[in-house]
Computed example of a mutant assay.
Amino acid sequence: MTEDQVLDEFRAAEALLEGHFILSSGLRSPRYLQCARVLMDPRRAARLTDALAATLPAELKIDAVVSPAMGGVIAGHEMGRSLGVPAMFLERPTGTFELRRGFRLEPGTRVLMMEDVVTTGLSSREAMKAIAAAGGTVVAAAALVDRSNGKAEFDVPFYPLIRLDVPSYAADALPPELAAIPAVKPGSRAIA
């Protein structure tokens, strides 16, 4: 799947938004990818995760997929389906990611940490810590979209389906055209 085909999937789902958005990191952006919209169609979700799964090297030998809630739940589930392995998700009941609902990882389970969108990589790194604490071994990270502008760094290989270079700004350093538009927060996580 080419980058244009991936973006066409987002456009068809009305999931590529333009405006003034507050990201879960607190940064501001003129574009937002609402992955929940693109993933609400199971066939579209399958096409995207199947395309991403096809890029993963077989030598990763993935045993399970684990994703952070909320945004990564559907993407992670679909990636588990694509790879034919169990899919689990992490929650933050007390502010820190943990496996719940009877999910568990046997020591040494080879895990793909799956996200919908990576902006700063903070949630992904927090998720990887939780996976390790639960006994899993993160062998790679993946996301439908990397919008970190190459800034997200992980201690494992990172496989995004597409990379989008979309600027993001601190709230007190907005360009005038963005400052002139009311800000909206389309994501699921409250800003600290």
Results as ranks from 00 to 15, higher is better:
residue 91 E to M: 06
residue 21 F to D: 05
residue 12 A to M: 07
residue 62 I to M: 08
residue 23 L to Y: 06
residue 15 A to M: 12
residue 4 D to V: 08
residue 99 L to I: 10
residue 96 T to L: 14
residue 35 C to H: 09
residue 24 S to P: 07
residue 100 R to K: 15
residue 4 D to N: 12
residue 21 F to E: 02
residue 42 P to W: 08
residue 47 R to F: 02
residue 36 A to C: 06
residue 112 L to P: 00
residue 69 A to I: 00
residue 79 M to F: 06
residue 22 I to K: 13
residue 114 M to K: 09
residue 119 T to F: 09
residue 90 L to S: 05
residue 98 E to R: 15
residue 59 E to N: 15
residue 64 A to D: 09
residue 75 A to L: 02
residue 55 T to H: 13
residue 41 D to A: 09
residue 36 A to E: 14
residue 13 A to V: 03
residue 93 P to C: 11
residue 68 P to L: 00
residue 30 P to K: 04
residue 52 L to Y: 10
residue 95 G to R: 10
residue 56 L to P: 10
residue 45 A to V: 00
residue 74 I to Q: 04
residue 65 V to L: 09
residue 37 R to C: 02
residue 20 H to Y: 04
residue 6 V to W: 08
residue 40 M to H: 13
residue 13 A to E: 03
residue 42 P to L: 11
residue 114 M to P: 04
residue 26 G to M: 05
residue 39 L to Q: 02
residue 15 A to N: 06
residue 103 F to E: 07
residue 86 P to K: 12
residue 14 E to V: 00
residue 103 F to P: 05
residue 30 P to E: 05
residue 20 H to W: 02
residue 69 A to R: 00
residue 85 V to L: 11
residue 39 L to G: 07
residue 105 L to I: 10
residue 110 R to C: 12
residue 40 M to P: 00
residue 54 A to W: 08
residue 75 A to C: 11
residue 103 F to S: 06
residue 59 E to S: 15
residue 19 G to F: 01
residue 91 E to T: 04
residue 103 F to M: 07
residue 66 V to P: 00
residue 120 T to S: 15
residue 92 R to M: 10
residue 9 E to N: 13
residue 87 A to V: 02
residue 32 Y to N: 04
residue 13 A to Q: 09
residue 73 V to I: 15
residue 7 L to P: 03
residue 9 E to C: 14
residue 81 R to V: 12
residue 93 P to S: 12
residue 90 L to Y: 05
residue 43 R to L: 14
residue 101 R to W: 08
residue 24 S to H: 06
residue 39 L to W: 08
residue 19 G to P: 04
residue 46 A to W: 10
residue 116 D to A: 13
residue 103 F to G: 01
residue 105 L to A: 01
residue 27 L to D: 02
residue 28 R to W: 06
residue 44 R to E: 01
residue 57 P to Y: 09
residue 35 C to P: 04
residue 51 A to D: 11
